[in-house]
């Protein structure tokens, strides 16, 4: 196993541990901090898999913008920790864990039967310049649609967050 393989498995362990810790925390802020750790490890993994530009975007957009937005909302809404009720906890988590294990089993079978089971990934790197040229040459319309989508999200977020008489009934 090369050094890159060892780095991959270490990063996978970090991502899995941070994700498991984050989805089981009762305090929302702790969960978000663990998700940020997981996203940083995921950014390094993107770099390892040959996508340096997407690794940067992962740090800037996911860990930087989206998670900070979550933290702002948590601070703004004063979300308190979920109280621990054993029966309710079991009732929430037991079906989810069982269904998740079944889905994971089926996914494992599909991956096992799928193409490239034994093929190892090559070591390559897509230059950001090549990616940008490819994106704007082949997918310029999708880029415009994505910008339109972001604009619609901006207007929708403003409308919903607007503290006016619209929709305020109670």
């Amino acid at each position: 196993m090369t050094i890159f393989g060892i780095i991959f498995y270490v990063l996978a362990a970090i991502i899995l541990i941070a994700t498991v810790l984050s989805i089981t925390r009762r305090t929302v802020m702790h969960a978000i901090i663990y998700v940020v750790i997981s996203f940083f490890a995921m950014a390094v993994l993107f770099y390892l898999l040959g996508a340096p530009f997407l690794a940067l975007l992962e740090v800037i957009i996911y860990a930087g913008a989206i998670m900070v937005l979550f933290i702002f909302i948590v601070m703004m809404l004063r979300v308190e920790a979920t109280p621990f009720v054993p029966g309710q906890w079991l009732r929430q988590w037991f079906p989810a864990v069982v269904l998740s294990l079944i889905s994971l089993f089926i996914m494992g079978i599909l991956i096992w039967q799928g193409p490239g089971r034994d093929a190892t990934l090559p070591l390559a790197m897509a230059a950001p310049r090549a990616l940008g040229q490819f994106l704007l040459q082949h997918y310029w319309l999708a880029v415009e649609i994505a910008s339109l989508l972001l604009f619609v999200a901006l207007v929708g977020a403003y409308y919903l967050g607007h503290k006016g008489d619209s929709g305020e009934k109670s």
């Binding site: 991959f8 994700t19 898999l49 994971l104 490239g116 190892t120």
Partner: peptide, 17 residues
């Protein structure tokens, strides 16, 4: 040569689940 492709897919499916 990093790792088998299936290992990455299994990692991604565990994260997704």
């Amino acid at each position: 040569m990093i790792v088998p492709y299936s290992h990455v897919l299994i990692l991604a499916s565990i994260i997704f689940i």
